[in-house]
Design a protein around this nucleic acid. Structure first.
Lengths: 196, 196
DNA sequence: TCCTAGTGGTACAGACCTGTCTCATTCCTA
DNA sequence: TAGGAATGAGACAGGTCTGTACCACTAGGA
């Protein structure tokens, strides 16, 4: 028999969509309850507070991101340079999706400006983990300063996500790709680009 | 006689600080009223709604940004390339200020995800104006594709602001400067960088 | 001195939000 | 089939937020 979706799973799935599309603060518990067809009591049996649900949402998005990076690594085994470009390409295609609404972690960071807030800290942690993964690949690819490259790509991608979110023109994704390429090429052991 | 600060001016000054430091949604009218020592009635006599106050706040910040760019232009007259670097340096020093809390426009964009919302649209407009200014300077500096460079710098700076806001390490501001330099150099008529 | 515009103080309405509680029902398993 | 765990429906409390209404005060000009 096919396992039916539990109330908890349904809540998390619906909340994840709503939080991402409309913002965490803008979406209330009542809305989540209504759209997931769950009773309020069931909600609070599965999640102690709304913040706990937000934590689960962040965790879900983080797993998605990390497994996306993992998939890219497996696609180009032992070719870390290609892995880097693959990650950038994956970001580009994300930005072009219709439901794209920026980086969920940045959004939560801005929605909860208090750096002591648990959601703020969790979102920050997610970004750190991603950066660490990229730095690792950059190191394997022979980047001169892998941490610097990872930090620079993180900045560029953060801003690009905001741009892609507020301006649907695909031009920006191309500009993003070109800029990322420049940053990567400046760090990788040069294929001699001056000779041509 | 020195003109006393009117209630309206006091409200906008206090609100501007609070909105930037703690977020627009997180700061309520009551808080603004209390901290600016104004009566609630006086508030609503000067601003029809909270959204109108947010609009005034965005406008104030936009004036600051644009006049900052203007000042940089006047500092290096007829040297558009230096103007570009000057703008980047100004961003870096902003990021290093203690009260730095990211880009006010990006923050509003994220806090009001509905693209039809007036605050969302106003914030977007502010960013467009800044980008246009930078594109103009890039064109004067002889950039191959001024609009591309302006868009790329906009992305980089947006992400850098988020990074600087969540991570106070000054390292990131250096990485930002280096990355911006790379993007600019790739666009400006080359001082021959292959010969050395 | 009087009058008026701007202001301060505060109570209040109406909406929304989070979280608790009660009770009936359903579903899975033993 | 019987019992227990999970669920659905919804009322309710307590808080916060925006915006309105009412009244008293003050300062400055006629």
């Amino acid at each position: 028999m096919i396992q039916k979706e539990t109330a908890k799973e349904r809540i998390l799935r619906v909340a994840s969509q709503l939080f991402y599309l409309e913002g965490v603060r803008a979406v209330g518990i009542d809305r989540i309850i209504a759209e997931s067809g769950v009773a309020k009591a069931s909600f609070y049996r599965n999640f102690k507070t709304k913040d706990e649900l937000v934590g689960a949402y962040l965790n879900l998005r983080n797993m998605d991101s990390l497994s996306g990076i993992e998939a890219t690594k497996e696609r180009y085994p032992d070719e870390p340079a290609k892995q880097l470009y693959g990650i950038i390409e994956r970001l580009v295609s994300q930005m072009r999706e219709p439901g794209f609404r920026g980086c969920p972690f940045i959004n939560v960071l801005v929605e909860f400006p208090d750096s002591a807030h648990e959601n703020h800290q969790e979102a920050m942690q997610c970004r750190v983990e991603q950066e660490r993964e990229v730095a690792l690949i950059a190191r394997q690819a022979g980047a001169r300063s892998p941490e610097v490259l990872a930090a620079q790509l993180k900045m560029l991608y953060g801003g690009a996500f905001i741009e892609a979110y507020t301006n649907k023109s695909t031009l920006n994704t191309e500009y993003f790709y070109e800029a990322a390429k420049l940053l990567i090429e400046a760090q990788l052991p040069a294929k001699p680009s001056c000779i041509e």
